[in-house]
């Protein structure tokens, strides 16, 4: 059985820190735990150790990005230049809503999706 690790007790990665681009810092145990939490991922002790090492190794490799002199350039989110395209506001009914409802993990008899209690 996999042992779950509480967010605040993830073991520290032992690899060297990735810190080249600007003020970026190494992913330490605390940062990894916080990142896992916002990613909605649980990590076992073994996973936390492995991912901690991997992530620092990968970021160290990716840190060459800091060498690019691109501060004067725009932020390129999309490679295709186009203005926002608005189509006519004509509703079109989707013909297979039952097909979508049937995929819900859990549902009421009436077809609505069930979710865990949040309050």
């Amino acid at each position: 059985m996999k042992k779950e690790t509480a967010a605040n007790s993830t073991p520290a990665p032992k690899s060297k820190p990735a810190s080249k681009p600007g003020a970026a810092q190494a992913i330490d145990a605390e940062t990894l735990a916080r990142t896992a939490e916002i990613s909605r991922l649980k990590l076992s002790d073994a996973e936390a150790e492995k991912f901690g090492k991997d992530l620092n190794l990968i970021l160290d490799y990716l840190s060459t990005i800091s060498e690019v002199q691109g501060a004067g350039e725009g932020e390129l989110y999309y490679v295709k230049n186009q203005n926002t395209v608005l189509r006519k506001d004509e509703p079109k009914a989707f013909d297979n809503t039952a097909g979508i409802r049937s995929q819900f993990a859990k549902k009421k008899d009436s077809g609505e999706m069930l979710s865990p209690k949040s309050m």
Binding site: I38, E73, E75, L76
Partner: peptide, 24 residues
Amino acid sequence: LLGSYVTSKEFRDAWYTKALHARS
């Protein structure tokens, strides 16, 4: 995990935004 890290508020300027400039 990596995607969440490089876009998190504390680190996005150093990684994500930098990569957007570099893509230009």
